[in-house]
Amino acid sequence: MLPLNCLGMRCPLPIIESAKALKTLVTGDQISLQSDDPATWVDLSAWARMSGNEVLQIDKTNFLITKKR
């Protein structure tokens, strides 16, 4: 699992950083994202729907991304 610290970044930066990091991974790999921007979960969910990947909210600032394609 790849840790990704985006604390303090404003959207869309956490989404951009997550997408960049995902490119280095293979299907099934996961990213543990930390982000405190209030739009993170809404935008991460929309990004997952559009890109075909999976996301899970662990708590307010921690998210799990699974590469599906």
Binding site: C11, P12, I15, A39, V42, D43, S45, A46, W47, R49, M50
Partner: peptide, 11 residues
């Protein structure tokens, strides 16, 4: 509104 719909809110 976008958040409630589940639409991307940035950009």
């Amino acid at each position: 509104v976008l958040a409630a719909m589940g639409i991307l809110t940035h950009g």
